[in-house]
């Protein structure tokens, strides 16, 4: 009952925002050249879907987004495990990581373009670089935070280090890794769009940029709407996955 009520109120709020948008556009409070009404944006979007124009850039954006994010996840988890379990790895890697971490990933686009050219590899690399940090931090912390009792259980059963990592430490770190991956997913969408805009590679970001240069405001809003839906869906997917994979957690510590 409470869930139903909260769902109803969030839908009501969204409707109110769209209604306000519509009202502002309809009363021409803002020049319609800059702000199209929701009906115009949606009509444009429908046109893209109808003509099939949308699928190619959407597909490319989604591919880059997930490729970059998954590469970041693999690197972040592995490096985090290494840093958490070996003092030598920590000494070796941590100073470099501390230097690279505060760099805005978008600042790395120009050198990435120089080194890798205007390619998908370049975009995926930049996304992976920019989104690896929350996953790395989650992984380090998650791997470190294992209960010493569980390590004793592993010792009593004489699991070799690799089995210990996969059977004990990785699942133990999973909640923290997922928290990092969720933050990174949102970052990845931002970086994908920025990289596409700066590198003129076909994709949703590029579509929005081209529309802006041509003053096609309905296209801009349609593109942004698609990006919003994409962000919402990927985040929901991640939440669903998390809820399933972490279903062993006691109810009170969820969320």
């Amino acid at each position: 009952m409470r869930r139903l009520a909260s769902a109803a109120s969030s839908v009501a709020f969204l409707t109110a925002v769209i209604a306000a948008w519509w009202l502002v556009a309809e009363t021409k409070l803002i020049n319609p050249m800059f702000l199209p009404g929701p009906q115009r944006a949606l009509a444009t979007l429908w046109g893209w879907i109808d003509s099939g124009e949308l699928w190619d850039p959407l597909g490319k954006t989604v591919w880059r987004l997930f490729a970059g994010w998954l590469v970041a996840s693999a690197i972040g988890i592995a490096l985090g495990a290494a840093i958490a379990s070996s003092a030598r790895a920590r000494e070796l890697l941590e100073p470099t990581a501390e230097f690279l971490r505060p760099l805005p990933a978008s600042a790395l686009l120009p050198p990435a373009v120089l080194l890798l050219g205007l390619t998908d590899t370049m975009i995926v690399t930049v996304i992976a670089f920019g989104t690896v940090w929350p996953i790395l931090l989650g992984s380090i912390h998650g791997f470190k935070a294992i209960d010493p009792r569980l390590i004793e259980v592993a010792r009593m059963l004489r699991f070799p280090p690799l089995a210990r990592a996969f059977k004990f430490q990785l699942p133990n770190a999973l909640p923290e890794i997922f928290a990092g991956m969720r933050v990174s997913l949102a970052l990845a969408l931002i970086l994908t769009v920025v990289a596409e805009m700066l590198s003129s590679q076909p994709g949703l970001g590029h579509m929005v940029l081209v529309a802006a240069r041509a003053f096609r405001s309905a296209d801009i809003f349609a593109g942004i709407f698609v990006l919003g839906v994409l962000g919402f869906l990927t985040n929901s997917l991640m939440q669903y996955l998390e809820a399933y994979l972490l279903r062993w957690r006691p109810a009170h510590s969820e969320g």
């Binding site: 009792r149 569980l150 259980v153 059977k167 004990f168 699942p171 133990n172 999973l174 062993w248 957690r249």
Partner: peptide, 9 residues
């Protein structure tokens, strides 16, 4: 409570 793997059945 600490000796069992909470993520395993």
């Amino acid at each position: 409570g600490r000796a069992l793997l909470p993520w395993r059945t």
